[in-house]
């Protein structure tokens, strides 16, 4: 909340080393940092970047699946997809709300996204070619998001952690609806089963890339973990996702497109191949299959909505003026 906005505590009354020691002790005791606490500039900047990127991902993430709302094969699937896409909007707004507690306005964040100064998850730059993609996105993409996000419910920054609790509760529906959709298709025709396998083949590697670069090439990770913004490394989360997904793939009757994927008895975990991280970097830099399309649509939606925002503000101003006239009279 913006009530708790900004730089309370850093008004100069207390010396910096003392503030810093208090912050470090709060983190060390696994307590939460709240908005008006003093925090290092780097901590604040890291959170703004991470929460904003997360919020932007939710908002852009409405597009790949939104395309299928009008083409869903039944009223039931249409209603489910509507609810899911609406949730993504909600998740974006919870996160913008959390970001605002750090003293940044969400209009400013939107501007940074539209100007390309802030990023969103690379996964949403891949196209949704068939309705099976809707199922695979729920299963893989939301499954990967759950792996990433469950530990963030214990993130050291209170408003972020609380947003994640709400989001994780809702992601569970997202993942289950996806898997159920795929189970249904796998019970269908040969063509439907082939569509599912094709979607699995296309989404598997981009989903593994969602966890970010490998640990030895992830410059911000160590500091984020020291600050307990992040709780697990990229590679650890990627491993968890693979271990979680393999038995689900077997049950579904699809093959994960990785010849190196096998159970490692000794480690008690799966061995798997390395995602093409040069592709990840390329897509992050803007050269994915749908980057231009996603940004163009987001920009258009923002511009098309301008008159609504202005009209609502004008209406509110008019109502306030009427009320003031009324009370003056």
């Amino acid at each position: 909340m913006t009530v708790t906005d900004g730089a309370g505590g850093s008004d100069g009354a207390t010396a910096l080393p003392e503030l810093s020691a208090h912050f470090d002790a709060t983190i060390a005791h696994d307590q939460r940092i709240e908005p008006r606490d003093w925090m290092p500039d780097g901590y604040r900047a890291t959170l703004v970047r991470q929460i904003a990127q997360h919020a932007h991902s939710e908002i852009i993430g409405m597009q790949p699946e939104g395309e299928w709302i009008t083409k869903a094969p039944s009223l039931r699937r249409k209603a489910i997809l509507f609810a899911k896409v609406q949730d993504e909007a909600g998740h974006g707004l919870y996160l913008y709300s959390a970001a605002e507690t750090l003293g940044i306005d969400r209009a400013e964040l939107t501007e940074r996204l539209l100007e390309g100064r802030q990023k969103y998850s690379s996964i949403f730059n891949y196209p949704t070619l068939s309705f099976a993609d809707v199922g695979v996105i729920g299963w893989f993409v939301d499954g990967a998001a759950i792996c990433n996000q469950v530990p963030l419910c214990r993130s050291s920054y209170g408003p972020y952690a609380r947003s994640m609790v709400r989001i994780c509760k809702e992601e569970s529906f997202h993942q289950r609806q996806g898997y159920e959709l795929l189970l249904t298709m796998m019970r269908g025709t040969q063509k439907q089963r082939a569509q599912v396998q094709d979607a699995v083949d296309r989404w598997w590697w981009p989903s593994l890339m969602m966890f970010g670069p490998p640990d030895d090439d992830s410059p911000n990770s160590a500091q984020s973990m020291a600050w307990k913004i992040k709780r697990h490394s990229n590679d650890e989360l990627r491993q968890r996702f693979v271990d979680m997904t393999v038995p689900q793939a077997e049950r579904l009757g699809v093959t994960l497109p990785d010849p190196e994927l096998r159970w490692n008895e000794e480690r008690g975990r799966h061995d798997f191949g390395t995602p093409d991280f040069t592709e990840l970097m390329r897509v992050i830099k803007g050269d994915g299959p749908c980057n231009a399309q996603r940004m163009a649509r987001r920009t258009k939606a923002h511009q098309d909505g301008a008159w609504v925002r202005e009209a609502a503000a004008a209406h509110a101003a008019k109502q306030t003026a009427h009320q003031q006239e009324g009370s003056a009279a």
Binding site: M1, E100, R309, A312
Partner: peptide, 30 residues
């Protein structure tokens, strides 16, 4: 605010018998 819309804090009563609890914020024109 977003286009000058003020920020509101939101409090929700989960069910009868409970207090309203702060859940987050949003911008709105009125």
């Amino acid at each position: 605010g977003s286009a000058g819309w003020p920020l509101y804090e939101v409090f929700v009563r989960g069910k009868r018998g409970l207090n309203h609890v702060h859940v987050g914020s949003l911008h709105a024109a009125d």
